[in-house]
Design a protein around this nucleic acid. Structure first.
Lengths: 190, 190
DNA sequence: GGTTTTATGTGATGTAGGTCACTTTATGAA
DNA sequence: TTCATAAAGTGACCTACATCACATAAAACC
């Protein structure tokens, strides 16, 4: 399936666009390819775009003063990723976005998203629902963090994304769960 | 300031509506008053509304199998609260919403929100931005959870909402921070 | 005001997970 | 195939926080 078709299928789950409307919508996206390990957003950068993943796997992460990394999101195909705080507010990035594998994305600028939202009411609706879903998911993760122990959250993650198990280093899974790699290692070797 | 004015000021920060448009928008909100301790949403209920707080303070919370409470949000004036997952998906509530103090809210049904979003493009824009802000705030809280220790998060919370210190029992602050009340007590008595 | 809840403080003790140090195993590039 | 680098496993030890138990204080209610 082409990047265009992946996006079209994804959009069709929320709104109905004519082919002409979708073509117009799609014309604002810029396809980009990245190699494993490449950075898409680096902390300190200005952020102009959000990225729709069509293949591969990204990580959105924060690095604290002690150089410890925390992963906010693994972005798989049909996921959106960016430093949304920086993107919306115009501040420089505090979140990095890197490729865990070779990856292809569709890049949409903030200005184009706002233009599209203004021009086509259905597209504003689409982006509202996308963020709604993200918000609910984020709340759920927060709750899981407060409520569940590491083992539980680890199993939860793998149940939701079994492919991560072979795809990403265990270190990164630990950084997503918010524990040290040693703790995660001990968790499933006992 | 009346509830209507509070909402109008809040909306005006994101979009411009004519007085007629705002009156129409406002006509869909139902003012409700609650007493301290009253429940607005109880886990297991169907959820039809979201609530815009105009006075008082609410808590949105989850109670786990061990009857331990976790607070997702303290909702102060101009904050929106509900079980958004239940509201959007039609599932029954897993989140409760209670009044910490006497409170007044404006109640908007899911159906009316969607109707308003469809009828008036600017209103869809407004709700998109509201959720954007919520999403970014939720991500930040998640990061703070992973990155910072309890003391840091406690000071962060009080810096952001100093009024909480005298307004809500320390137990609830502990439930927001995700620690036991004993730990919180020891934290600021040393 | 007096009585019953509810909230808070504090000691003793247990435990999950962190950190450091080192070893072992993969992965990748020349 | 070999060497270099990154990832993963593991022991020893430490710390933040949980839990339980009980004491005290503050609200709330008749």
């Amino acid at each position: 399936m082409s990047a265009k078709e992946i996006l079209q299928n994804y959009v069709a789950k929320t709104i109905s666009l004519t082919d002409e409307q979708f073509d117009y919508f799609f014309s604002h996206f810029k396809p980009q390819s990245f190699k494993k390990g490449q950075a898409i957003i680096t902390a300190g950068d200005r952020v102009n775009c959000e990225y729709f993943v069509t293949s591969g796997c990204l990580k959105a992460f924060y690095i604290n003063d002690d150089l410890k990394m925390f992963i906010l999101q693994f972005a798989m195909p049909t996921w959106w990723a960016s430093d949304f705080d920086a993107l919306y507010s115009g501040n420089v990035a505090t979140i990095g976005l890197d490729c865990i594998t070779d990856a292809e994305v569709l890049c949409l600028t903030n200005a184009d998203r706002e233009k599209l939202c203004k021009e086509i009411h259905a597209i504003e609706h689409f982006f509202r629902w996308r963020t709604n879903k993200g918000y609910v998911a984020s709340q759920k993760r927060l709750l899981s963090f407060m409520n569940n122990d590491t083992k539980h959250r680890y199993e939860e993650l793998l149940a939701q994304y079994p492919e991560l198990y072979n795809l990403v280093p265990k270190q990164l899974i630990a950084a997503y769960l918010g524990v040290s790699r040693e703790t995660l290692s001990r968790l499933y070797n006992s």
